[in-house]
Simulated assay, not measured.
Amino acid sequence: MSMTALFEKNSDTVRAQQNRELLLLTGFLVVIWAVTTALSPRFLSPANLSDILLQAAPLGFVVIGQMIVIIVRGLDLSVASIMATVAVLSIGLNDNTVVIFAVGILLGALIGGINGYLVAYRGVTPFLATLATMIVLQGIRFAYTGGAPGGTLPETFRWLATGDLFGIPVALILLAIVAFAAHWLLEYTVYGRRLKLYGDNPDAAYMTGAPTRLLVVSAFMISGVLAGLAGLVLVGYVGIVDNWTGRGYELDSIAAAVIGGAALSGGKGSVPGVLLATLVLVSLFNIVVILGLSIELQLVIKGSLILLAAAVYMRRSRR
């Protein structure tokens, strides 16, 4: 059997497993929503559901990018720092919405490209490369702002993050477009198959003629772009520019990606799975607030979910 045929056969097995995990995640989400609604009917109010979806949108962008990096055996710890840096620099330099988003996307691509270059061409481990980038970006932000970021948020910019179009939040429309594009890219293009083949077996990908180094760089660039976009959407949602925009998203995105089906060993990941895991994550955070529980409980939930993600990963590895 040829290498391509083996990969396709393995892909079918992975899809079946991902479908099972998707059903389990859906069932878990239904259960926690039902229990919370029984305790507090306000949970399913249109206003609260709208808040959950709007909070899930920026994290959803980051999780998709993180998943793509994980598929190529990487890890991006710099996503939160990219979010804050892109927001601070883009909004501080201009007050035109189009320019802000253009600059933000370019900055995200540049930073992601640097991460990818360090990993693919200099042999730095993804953990160390993105950790170093995270720290460097923090220094750049604070040097640029003097600790007090500024800038005016245009009305159209705020509308993109909090407004709606025919009753549908614009941020969710943007996320749906990105999610559809990422799903199509991974499942129906040569590029997507090469990403998964590389994650599954780098040597096999190299022998098929795939530009393996460029694949890694492109994965980190996609993560950088989506993190930058997430930073802008999050700033528009909260209404202020902050040096710590997106703080904690690096761990949240890794947890959501792994729970949603991405394997830290590489080669596996689905957009529907990681988005559903994102919704589960945000729902749990919202439940803490709705039920009037201590806000510190969110940290307990985050830690527990990271442990759950590790358990899920180990279970997949044994399989």
Results as ranks from 00 to 15, higher is better:
Asn115Gln: 09
Ala219Thr: 01
Tyr198Glu: 07
Ala256Thr: 08
Gly239Ser: 09
Gln66Val: 10
Leu23Lys: 02
Gly228Ile: 04
Gly60Leu: 10
Ile301Gln: 03
Phe285Glu: 14
Ile140Gln: 06
Tyr206Pro: 00
Leu275Thr: 09
Ala57Ile: 04
Ile64Phe: 00
Thr37Trp: 12
Gly74Pro: 01
Pro41Gly: 07
Ser218Asn: 11
Thr36Ala: 10
Gly303Leu: 05
Gly108Val: 08
Ser218Thr: 14
Asp242Ser: 13
Gly266Pro: 01
Gly60Pro: 08
Ile68Met: 15
Leu279Gln: 00
Val103Thr: 12
Gly147His: 06
Asp200Val: 02
Leu186Asn: 01
Glu296Asp: 14
Arg194Ser: 12
Lys302Met: 09
Leu279Gly: 05
Gly146Asp: 05
Asn286Ala: 15
Ala204Tyr: 01
Leu275Glu: 10
Leu93Met: 14
Ile290Gln: 13
Gly209Ala: 06
Arg20Ile: 13
Ala16Phe: 12
Asn96Gln: 11
Glu250Ser: 10
Val190Lys: 15
Ala310Gln: 05
Arg319Glu: 15
Val31Thr: 14
Ala262Arg: 08
Glu21Pro: 03
Gly104Leu: 09
Ala219Val: 04
Ala227Gln: 04
Leu107Thr: 03
Phe166Cys: 10
Gly199Thr: 01
Ala129His: 06
Val14Glu: 15
Asp200Ala: 15
Leu195Ile: 09
Leu54His: 09
Asn96Thr: 11
Asp12Ile: 12
Ile140Ala: 11
Phe157Val: 08
Arg20Phe: 13
Ile32Thr: 11
Arg315Val: 05
Asp76Gln: 04
Ala255Pro: 06
Gly147Ala: 05
Asn94Asp: 12
Pro202Gly: 04
Leu175Pro: 10
Ala56Cys: 00
Leu186Tyr: 03
Met83Ser: 06
Tyr191Pro: 07
Ala129Val: 06
Ile222Val: 14
Ile222Met: 14
Gly150Pro: 03
Ala120Lys: 05
Val119Arg: 09
Gly267Asn: 08
Ala38Asn: 04
Leu264Trp: 08
Phe28Met: 13
Ala309Leu: 05
Phe220Leu: 06
Gly228Tyr: 10
Leu128Val: 11
Ile301Cys: 01
